[in-house]
Design a protein around this nucleic acid. Structure first.
Lengths: 153, 153
DNA sequence: CTGGAAATGAAAATCATTTTCAATAAGGGG
DNA sequence: CCCCTTATTGAAAATGATTTTCATTTCCAG
């Protein structure tokens, strides 16, 4: 088992243990795969990659572990509208970003441009909405959809 | 069959015919149900309501008709993250709005507050993103998630 | 080392949505 | 106003992602 981003892995493993969960082989391998594939992976993508390293893995464990990692805050789960969830590990220091999604090929681009303005507006809106509607706002979603260069040619 | 919002219905029916589709009974009933229930209905919600008026309806027809209405631009389809799509009819003159979603009870509030600022920012961002990434941007999504008053008490 | 709780994996279940296909209905042309 | 072609419908089966069940295995605290 080759661990990339070893420094981060330690921290992530700590988060799992701190939350009272056991640090099992499947969890380590899944974490390793996520750490070394910064794209937006589906559960099946992750299954296939983990399977190469640890063939006895079950798809069920992938789903269960991803849930766990999301609940612990190590992984971000996104829905790009193509009927399957996508997962990406939260890398410390990586700027908060939003997604630009190609509706033809499902390619996803992380963008951080304009993020400051977006976040400022979101903060204001969040405040206004929670006061007006008496909501405890816990999150937001901003995504842009379109057709990428390749899919137009 | 009782048609509310009759004036609108005519226009909507026109959009269906203009697009080259037949104006069938099931389509009229579904349109009627959507016109008289301005909430955010799931396919099953719509099925149950249509069924009361037109019991021979099939769920398949609900799905197919909703697809059609979305493609013609009469209906807006949304995903609030609870595993089922929601549909609302587009009412002329109704201001563009975004959604505030309770993650406990799935209640959805349409809000128009701050919408102008949001839309202004979205327009700028859209321009910037499409230039930078060579994307033809066709849509966006903004949603806020939280816990409503009732679900907190 | 070892016992008991937590985690795993295979298989079956779920659930929204889609597909298939034979039967039915809309509406333009005669 | 009727007929014919073609779009539309509905029942049932299929799909595909995710979840549940349950017997087995693994972790790790004592």
């Amino acid at each position: 088992m080759r661990f990339g981003r070893r420094g981060f892995c330690k921290a992530w493993q700590g988060q799992i243990k701190d939350a009272g969960y056991r640090l099992t082989i499947p969890r380590q391998v899944i974490l390793d795969v996520l750490a070394n594939n910064t794209g937006h992976l589906s559960a099946e993508d992750i299954y296939l990659k983990v399977h190469k390293i640890y063939p006895q893995i079950g798809l069920t464990t992938i789903y269960r572990t991803l849930d766990l990692l999301v609940s612990v805050g190590v992984v971000l789960k996104s829905d790009f509208g193509d009927g399957r969830a996508r997962f990406e590990i939260k890398i410390k220091d990586k700027t908060h970003h939003h997604h630009l999604i190609c509706t033809k090929c499902s390619r996803v681009i992380d963008y951080t441009d304009f993020i400051d303005k977006e976040l400022k507006l979101l903060a204001e809106t969040k405040k206004g909405l929670s006061e007006k509607f008496d909501f405890e706002i816990t999150g937001h979603l901003i995504q842009f959809y379109g057709v990428c260069k390749d899919c137009r040619s």
